[in-house]
């Protein structure tokens, strides 16, 4: 099988690896780069497990062939955690702020925003992206933005509580 070498930027680092056939970004991250924090669920962009940040937006990495990702800037949950834990020195503009990531991760743990955890990296990315764009979203807005990030365990209640807590911590309301 003919392989091609693909070069892109993952979590701020330039990476290069061979890809074969219909290899998608999700599998490329997991199997070629060993970044297994990005999970793979439905394979059709419907579940949100493979959510990553690519060139400024959250996308489903199961829908992006690795060859299409060439040259792009991709951030996974590992990079998000590096950001939160102060290991990223020159974060490009547009990424969520480290304090926001910390607030979101903490809120998911404290509010039972997770159970089995397989959807959690994608949920955390989605919430960071939402709160970056809109620090105090309405409940309706949260539901619309997170509608494509499925969770079978929590019934979403813990996730919604986590979003509220993180939002409140990140962008406190004016009210006393």
């Amino acid at each position: 099988m003919s392989a091609r070498t693909v070069e892109l930027f993952v979590n701020g680092r330039r990476v290069q690896a061979p890809v074969e056939g219909a290899e998608f970004l999700a599998e490329f991250l997991r199997e070629r780069l060993g970044l297994a924090g990005t999970k793979v669920g439905c394979g059709i962009g419907a579940c949100g497990l493979c959510t990553v940040w690519m060139d400024g937006q959250v996308v489903s990495s199961c829908l992006v062939p690795a060859v299409v990702a060439a040259g792009r800037h991709v951030w996974t949950v590992e990079g998000l955690t590096d950001l939160a834990e102060g290991r990223v020195t020159d974060a490009p503009p547009g990424l969520p702020s480290p304090q926001l990531v910390q607030a979101v991760q903490r809120a998911f743990v404290q509010c039972e925003g997770l159970q089995c955890g397989i959807c959690t990296p994608g949920q955390v990315w989605a919430v960071c992206a939402l709160l970056s764009e809109e620090p105090r979203p309405s409940e309706e807005r949260v539901r619309e933005f997170l509608a494509g990030n499925l969770c079978r365990c929590t019934g979403y209640q813990g996730i919604l509580r986590a979003v509220r807590q993180a939002s409140e911590e990140w962008a406190p309301s004016e009210d006393p």
Partner: peptide, 25 residues
Amino acid sequence: MRTVGRADGWAKVTGRAAYAGDVRL
């Protein structure tokens, strides 16, 4: 307001929790 949360929470929000499909040998 400080609750400790789940024992497995931190591993899961940081993407470090390992599932069967994450194993590479």
